[in-house]
Design a protein around this nucleic acid. Structure first.
Length: 261
DNA sequence: AAGCTGAACAACCGCTCCTAG
DNA sequence: CCTAGGAGCGGTTGTTCAGCT
């Protein structure tokens, strides 16, 4: 549906933020809280789009941000989470206290992808490169372009779809043959249908009923869970997830700690 | 020393989801 | 129930910086 632009572009600044703008934004949020982003710029005396303010705050100005290099543990944790969740950067970020989705996304694209490739692992499927390549070819043959043509907004936000992605780690690693949940370069349009089927058939993989909705549940409360690692319980479904849980526990400790750097 | 290239990161854009009216 | 507005997400682009030739 048509909609009005989020801001009056003609009257908004773009590009890098100045210190003064940062100060204004920080001061305003400290005084008034995050509230309504759309009206915030005006209220704060900023010539910025609300979206831009939100992004700036969340990715850069928030006081609880960690910043600095990622630790080896975080690397591995991100890889695991990506295997489970795909390009759900916000969900991944939700499990890494002090990290933002944008930061993780960038880090993934610049470091981890390469790291995995060096290991001979396909960053998209988390499978050995050869296997991934084979599967890719098969996919190309079986499902040529139709998924690529999927609506740009395939956005895995869809609950059902998400449940599939997040619930069964295996669903990811298996169905991953048709490409996991990831979706960076080749449009994630991932073969939804195929994915669904596979994940369903893999259901047995989830040992306990709790697992039927593990991540999904997290999805809801993860935001709060992240900070304290509460999301752990929900993730203890498989060996893989168990490993993740351990990581999370450890990472949780980093939360308030100054990073070594 | 200068130019080039690639990596890293900040920010923007377009889309979907959620929800209030 | 429908519509519109706001928020959030993921992909992409633009800019800066460091290393190399």
């Amino acid at each position: 549906m048509g909609r009005s632009p989020c801001c009056e572009k003609a009257h908004t600044n773009k590009g890098a933020w100045t210190k003064e703008e940062d100060q204004r934004l920080i001061a305003y949020i400290k005084a008034n809280g995050e509230g309504c982003w759309r009206s915030l710029p005006k209220a704060a005396g900023l010539l910025r789009c609300g979206k831009s303010c939100r992004l700036r705050w969340i990715n850069y100005l928030r006081p609880d941000l960690k910043r600095g290099n990622f630790t080896e543990e975080e690397d591995e944790f991100i890889i695991k989470l990506h295997e489970l969740l795909g390009n759900k950067w916000s969900l991944i970020a939700g499990r890494l206290p002090g990290r933002t989705d944008n930061e993780i996304k960038n880090y993934w694209n610049t470091h981890i992808k390469r790291k995995l490739l060096a290991r001979g692992v396909d960053p998209q499927t988390h499978r050995p490169l050869n296997a991934a390549a084979d599967h890719h070819q098969q996919q190309q043959l079986q499902a040529p372009r139709r998924f690529a043509a999927a609506p740009a907004g395939h956005h895995h936000h869809h609950p059902d779809h998400f449940a599939v992605l997040s619930n069964s780690p295996e669903a990811c690693s298996h169905s991953s043959d048709d490409e996991p949940s990831s979706a960076t370069p080749p449009p994630p349009p991932r073969h939804l249908g195929i994915d669904l089927n596979l994940s369903i058939s893999l259901a047995p993989y989830q040992p306990q009923d709790q697992t039927s909705e593990p991540m999904k549940q997290e999805e809801d409360d993860e935001a709060s869970a992240t900070a304290n690692g509460a999301g752990n319980a929900a993730m203890t479904t498989t060996a893989t997830t168990a490993a993740v849980c351990l990581c999370l526990n450890r990472l949780g400790l980093h939360g308030g700690e100054p990073r070594p750097e």
